[in-house]
């Protein structure tokens, strides 16, 4: 038997794999998984050739719209989804960096209005590979290294 942590199989639902271990909780926050009552298991600090250390989430009876799942591209650009029905993988999906990011990220500019008043942040993704976000309000760029999830 391979030496791996067993994260139990699910009957119906979604498996999100290849999440960088350090960003597991950000993914949970972005998808509001901390606010739903579905059965859920997750494993973290699992070995991964690609990521060094990865995390995986399995959620029962939960299926995501593309628009919803693409939000995690900010913190888990290599994430892969398996859609499970009757213990079978019926569909595989990868995430795609969206054109606009609404209400997830924080603007890096300390003088930006979004850091002073109750304003939903809005960004245009100006570079999908490096994930550079241009703030709709102050027009400054927030890059991957300075990305903070709200």
């Amino acid at each position: 038997m391979k030496k791996e942590l067993k994260v139990s199989a699910i009957n119906n639902g979604t498996v999100i794999d290849h999440i960088p271990a350090t960003n597991l909780y950000k993914v949970i926050t972005i998808l509001n998984l901390d606010k739903i009552s579905n059965a859920m298991t997750y494993g973290s600090n699992l070995e991964s050739k690609k990521l060094g250390s990865k995390a995986i989430i399995k959620i029962s009876d939960k299926f995501f719209e593309d628009e919803e799942i693409n939000k995690i591209a900010l913190v888990a650009p290599q994430a892969k989804l398996n859609i499970i029905k009757n213990y079978q993988v019926v569909e595989k999906k990868v995430v795609e960096v969206p054109d606009k990011i609404i209400g997830i990220a924080k603007c890096v500019n300390p003088k930006c209005i979004t850091n002073f008043e109750e304003v939903t942040t809005k960004f245009t993704v100006i570079n999908k590979e490096t994930v550079d976000l241009k703030c709709h309000y102050c027009e400054k760029i927030t890059d991957q290294n300075h990305l903070v999830i709200k």
């Binding site: 603007c107 500019n109 003088k111 209005i113 008043e117 703030c135 309000y137 400054k140």
Partner: peptide
Amino acid sequence: HPIEGSARF
């Protein structure tokens, strides 16, 4: 206004 993005908001 001294805060950036305040006018857009």
